[in-house]
């Protein structure tokens, strides 16, 4: 293919990418309406020293870490079970784990309102059994956000871990078993280390998704449990504070980039050793 035709093929896509993504993103950072870049930086500095704003950053990171840990803890067993099963149900279970990825986040998160709400499943169950007099406040807590986000990102963890486990040669595990290693030992010293790069990818995707998700903290966290995303929306849409909105956007983006960068380094190191 000649250079000129290659360029012609690239040009329309490139133009859309520039107008629909790259240029606005850069412009938002350097020149929000009526605000200078210096003011954005200044606002960012204020954010990282103000206890309220810092609390939101910390809550976002904390929730992200907890959700990531839970998703790996639940997702890896599911993935290894399905990848190594010879049962015909494995296909059905895999489809059941992937299906939620197609379903709207609003619908999935809405389910937790029914489960955790004051007249919800858990509250009714606890009061009905006479365990408590008044249903505990479950909605608008960090726990609610964590549950919602785990539901949202567990399918992603499962399919990413699934492809990692599927790539490990079952012969290695059979060899370990044949040499006398227990099931548990084979799992920890063969399967886990060999699928670790995939697990790191899964963890990164879940973390990046959790710290940037909007629907879940909005519906399940309310205004008392703000995360960076809900705070960003409030700056951009309610108070129309462009400097603060841009500063929040930068903090959120840097957080995602930082974690992706670290995980890429870890992944490369893992591949070498």
């Amino acid at each position: 293919m000649r250079a000129r035709s290659t360029l012609l093929l690239l040009l329309p896509g490139l133009a859309f990418l520039l107008v629909g993504f790259l240029l606005p993103a850069v412009a938002m950072l350097f020149a929000p309406p009526g605000v200078t870049f210096a003011q954005v930086i200044e606002r960012m500095g204020a954010m990282l020293t103000d206890p309220y704003d810092l609390g939101i950053v910390w809550r976002t990171v904390r929730i992200g870490l907890v959700v990531t840990a839970v998703c790996v803890l639940l997702g890896f067993p599911i993935a290894s079970l399905l990848a190594r099963s010879r049962s015909r149900w494995a296909g059905v279970l895999l489809a059941l784990a992937i299906f939620p990825l197609l379903l709207s986040n609003v619908v999935r998160t809405f389910g937790w309102l029914v489960v955790l709400g004051s007249n919800g499943v858990i509250g009714q169950l606890l009061t009905g059994l006479g365990l408590v007099e008044k249903a505990p406040q479950l909605l608008y807590t960090e726990l609610a956000i964590v549950l919602g986000l785990v539901q949202l990102f567990l399918p992603l963890a499962v399919i990413t871990c699934y492809s990692a486990v599927a790539q490990v040669d079952p012969g290695l595990e059979e060899a370990a078993r044949g040499l006398g290693a227990s099931r548990t030992r084979t799992f920890w010293s063969i399967l886990v280390p060999l699928s670790l790069p995939g697990v790191v990818v899964a963890a990164t995707l879940v973390f990046a998704g959790s710290v940037t998700a909007y629907t879940t903290p909005y519906l399940l966290g309310g205004s008392s449990q703000r995360m960076l995303s809900t705070q960003l929306f409030s700056y951009a849409s309610v108070t129309v504070d462009w400097a603060a909105a841009s500063a929040t956007a930068v903090v959120m983006t840097v957080l995602v980039f930082l974690v992706s960068g670290i995980s890429a380094l870890v992944g490369r190191k893992g591949a070498v050793s």
Binding site: P77, I78, S80, R84, S85, R86, A97, G111, P155
Partner: peptide, 29 residues
């Protein structure tokens, strides 16, 4: 499922918990 390695009760319990979180709230909707 004699061929699977993850018959360990802890692993099975975690897997079940995972499916409950993924699917059950949708059922309540």
């Amino acid at each position: 499922m004699s061929g699977t390695r993850l018959r360990h009760p802890v692993a099975a319990a975690l897997a079940v918990a995972g499916y409950v979180i993924m699917i059950v709230p949708i059922g309540f909707v």
